[in-house]
């Protein structure tokens, strides 16, 4: 464990909690892409099946359970409890254009052709593009609530911090996982546009609004 990985995990946890609390407290999921949240629930489900097969540490197990639990709770709030506030007209990204290619790639490029490893690879590739429906929805509505931008910032920063974690682990442990690194770079690049808007607008107290 190193400082980049720990702060990355905490940033990820913060993002998940911020979103869950935002929906729960405001009793509304306006502006939130349910499709992205379904993809994240799928990412955690396929990645954390090893909860059933191997124990790494209490930290590892408890964080995985929290992530999976919050992901499904968020999907439940969006599609069940506060369904009336779900903005389906703007959440129109075709997720099959993500899941199918990612699924195919996971079969072609992986570390080991075993079910658990292919599912883990699928989850790594899927996570790198899972935010696209949410970013697409913001571009369609032309704006995002400030709390939503904080959620996205924490979510984007988490994987950027993991990039530093991988540099650290390569240098000090000789460990590297090319699949996770390449997917992590792609994932972080997809946030760059949002990072620019967040830093130049939201941090200056303005609302995040895109030229619609």
């Amino acid at each position: 464990m190193n400082v980049f990985r720990l702060t990355g995990d905490l940033s990820h946890l913060a993002a998940i909690i911020i979103l869950l609390l935002k929906i729960w407290k405001s009793r509304s999921c306006a502006g939130i892409s349910g499709k992205s949240q379904i993809l994240f629930a799928l990412v955690f489900t396929t990645r954390y099946l090893d909860l059933l097969t191997s124990f790494i540490s209490l930290y590892n197990t408890s964080m995985k359970i929290i992530y999976v639990g919050c992901a499904y709770a968020t999907v439940y709030l969006i599609y069940a409890k506060f369904r009336a506030t779900y903005d389906g007209n703007h959440d129109t990204f075709r997720v099959e254009f993500l899941v199918v290619p990612v699924g195919g790639l996971a079969f072609l490029v992986n570390h080991d052709f075993s079910p658990l490893e292919i599912l883990w690879t699928f989850s790594i590739y899927l996570e790198s593009v899972a935010i696209l429906p949410q970013l697409f929805m913001i571009s369609k509505t032309g704006e995002a609530e400030t709390i939503t931008t904080h959620y996205l910032f924490c979510l984007g920063v988490y994987r950027a911090l993991y990039l530093f974690n991988w540099i650290w682990r390569f240098y000090f442990e000789g460990f590297f996982d090319m699949i996770a690194i390449v997917a992590g770079v792609v994932q972080t690049i997809l946030y760059c546009d949002f990072f620019y808007l967040y830093i130049t607008k939201v941090l200056k107290g303005k609302k995040l609004s895109l030229p619609a």
């Binding site: 090893d50 992530y67 974690n165 460990f175 590297f176 996982d177």
Partner: peptide, 10 residues
């Protein structure tokens, strides 16, 4: 690379 069997990252 020196990939650990178990993926120890979240």
């Amino acid at each position: 690379g020196t990939l650990t069997e178990d993926h120890d990252e979240l």
